[in-house]
């Protein structure tokens, strides 16, 4: 175990950790919006819409994230039409490609979780709201979504942790996030164990923080319910 190596590589690893955090936070934020939209799309009575959204969910859940990242990064970049299009300034950056892939991926998984949450709200509640003359918008805001939120919180917490793990794949498209930095240092110093252990400890810490945060949120919500 080479402690000086750990010490000298810490600044680089920290920079990688910052990039990891950025990727995770941006993808989670965009992902939850997409997930909610996906859940509603799947539940929509508009058949073409629900089919389309269903296809999106199916494709992204039945293929590995690595394929998705490579397809978005190398696959799309291959086409002249894509390179000439308006989205190229975004797609040419590995940073945005990674966020796009992570967002689409977590949107599909998260969408299913939220859909399950919405479906779990007892129909009696909806009937009661309707009987009170609530408009659908108000009903969703006051009755369905709060209950669905509480229902999905544990599962969505797990999904958030999956996004943290998934962000490590950004290293395969040149991004120097935590795993990428660790890998580069390992390849340069030929002492891989030290840096991978430090990187692993950081991921573990980040995930423990998320898990703890979700648990706190659950407890708070449970308290509000009792009142």
């Amino acid at each position: 175990m080479d402690l000086t190596l750990i010490q000298t590589s810490l600044p680089q690893l920290a920079a990688g950790a910052v990039l990891t955090l950025e990727l995770v936070l941006l993808s989670l934020a965009a992902g939850i919006v997409l997930a909610v939209a996906t859940a509603f799309g799947r539940l929509s009575r508009l058949r073409p819409l629900s089919l389309l959204v269903g296809a999106y969910v199916f494709v992204f859940r039945s293929t590995p994230l690595l394929v998705q990242i490579f397809l978005i990064y190398y696959g799309l970049g291959q086409f002249e039409a894509v390179r000439a299009s308006l989205v190229w300034p975004l797609l040419r950056e590995p940073y945005w490609c990674a966020i796009l892939a992570l967002t689409l991926n977590t949107g599909a998984y998260g969408g299913e979780i939220i859909r399950g949450g919405i479906l779990s709200v007892p129909f009696g509640q909806i009937e009661a709201a309707r009987a009170l003359g609530m408009a659908p918008g108000l009903m969703y805001r006051r009755i369905i979504l709060p209950q669905a939120f509480r229902q999905v919180l544990p599962a969505y917490g797990n999904e958030m942790i999956q996004v943290v793990q998934a962000s490590s794949l950004a290293s395969t498209i040149t991004l120097m996030e935590l795993t990428g930095v660790a890998r580069a240092i390992a390849a340069r110093t030929y002492q891989p164990l030290e840096v991978f252990l430090v990187a692993g400890a950081f991921y573990l810490l980040l995930n423990l923080v998320i898990a703890q945060g979700v648990r706190l949120a659950e407890r708070r919500l449970a308290r509000e319910t009792r009142r």
Binding site: G77, Q78, R83, R92, E93, P94, T172
Partner: peptide
């Protein structure tokens, strides 16, 4: 990770 992927990105203008 590979020389070939670098060439792909040179070609795509990344």
């Amino acid at each position: 990770d590979t020389q070939e992927n670098m060439a792909l990105d040179l070609q795509s203008g990344r």
